[in-house]
C-alpha cells in the first residue's frame, strides 16, 4: 500500500514497529519507516507510546512468590544441606 512517493501506510508501519526497535529492518526499509514517521504525527505517537510501554514494563515490581511454595523449597534446601537426597515436589 505504498503511496506515490513509495512510502508506507500507517497500517503497515504499526506492524514494523517491533522490527524497527530491534534494529532488524534492512537499511532501506528503515529509512522508509523513518520517512513515514517524519510526516505522520499519529505513527510518531504510536512509536513513542510503544517506547513508553516498554519502559513501564521494565519498571514492574517483582512478583511475590507463593508463601507455601517458598516454605516447601526452604524445607527442601535444608534437607539437601543436611546431606539427604531432597524429595521432588511432585
Amino acid at each position: 500500500m505504498s503511496d506515490a512517493q513509495g512510502m508506507l501506510s500507517c497500517r503497515e508501519v504499526v506492524e514494523l514497529v517491533t522490527a524497527y526497535l530491534e534494529g532488524a529492518l534492512m537499511e532501506a526499509e528503515e529509512v522508509r519507516f523513518e520517512e513515514h514517521l517524519a510526516m505522520c504525527d499519529g505513527c510518531a505517537a504510536y512509536l513513542d507510546q510503544m517506547r513508553r510501554t516498554i519502559d513501564v514494563a521494565g519498571r514492574l515490581d517483582p512478583e511475590a512468590v507463593d508463601v507455601e511454595a517458598c516454605d516447601r523449597l526452604i524445607h527442601a534446601f535444608r534437607t539437601w544441606r543436611a546431606g539427604s537426597e531432597p524429595e521432588s515436589g511432585s
Binding site: 505522520c40 504525527d41 499519529g42 513513542d48 507510546q49 513508553r52 510501554t53 514492574l60 515490581d61
Partner: peptide
C-alpha cells in the same frame, strides 16, 4: 488509504509521575 482515522495521541503531555505510578504499572502487569 491505510492512514490513521483515529490516531493515537501523544503522551508527551502526560506527567512523568502518572506514567510511573503504581496503578499504571498494575495495568501493564
Amino acid at each position: 488509504p491505510g492512514h490513521w482515522a483515529s490516531p493515537p495521541r501523544s503522551w508527551e503531555g502526560t506527567p512523568e509521575q502518572e506514567l510511573l505510578a503504581g496503578e499504571t504499572r498494575e495495568r501493564v502487569q
